[in-house]
């Protein structure tokens, strides 16, 4: 049960969309507060988590040719962002219906200004609301990932 707003600029992926096969789970870190608008300006916190990164399993990294600390592009129908890859065994691929489904972890605190800068993860997530109070409910969604930087650098 969710509220959806199917309008231009807010396209939703199909269920099990082959173009966006990867599960993206967003979360927060202890070092930053919410979208980081306060904590990214504090040198002591900025240095602890300096840049947007995504956590990916060694299996997915091997499949996509991504090395640890490389730049990656993460995309959904709604937008694309750039992040650094943190390859870790803490992330593990799921086996669902005999198929391997990869998940990436994406902390969420960055923006284009501050001492610690990074892309905005909300550029990826579509607008979805919970049915009672319409609070944003796209913490986990689907997308895709590839090695490289925005603008093809």
């Amino acid at each position: 049960m969710t509220k959806i707003w199917a309008v231009n600029g807010n396209e939703y992926h199909k269920v099990a969309d082959p173009d966006y096969p990867i599960v993206i789970s967003t979360y927060r870190l202890t070092e930053h507060h919410l979208s980081g608008t306060m904590s990214r300006w504090l040198p002591w916190l900025a240095e602890l988590m300096p840049e947007l990164f995504c956590e990916i399993s060694p299996e997915l990294a091997a499949e996509k040719g991504i090395k640890n600390a490389d730049y990656v592009i993460i995309s959904t129908k709604r937008g694309e962002i750039e992040a650094r890859a943190l390859v870790t065994k803490r992330m593990r691929p799921f086996k669902i219906d005999g198929k391997t489904v990869h998940e990436i972890g994406l902390p969420w605190h960055w923006g284009w200004q501050g001492i610690a800068k990074g892309d905005v993860v909300n550029n990826l997530s579509a607008l979805v609301g919970d049915p009672n109070v319409s609070i944003h409910e796209a913490k986990v969604f689907t997308g895709n990932i590839k090695a490289g930087r925005k603008g093809g650098v």
């Binding site: 870190l29 504090l42 040198p43 002591w44 900025a46 240095e47 602890l48 988590m49 300096p50 840049e51 990164f53 640890n68 600390a69 650094r84 890859a85 943190l86 390859v87 870790t88 001492i115 610690a116």
Partner: peptide, 16 residues
């Protein structure tokens, strides 16, 4: 103590 220059290390959650 001043903040150090932000630098992503790729070594787990340790950027110090």
């Amino acid at each position: 103590l001043d903040g150090a220059k932000p630098h992503f290390t790729g070594d787990s959650y340790d950027n110090t």
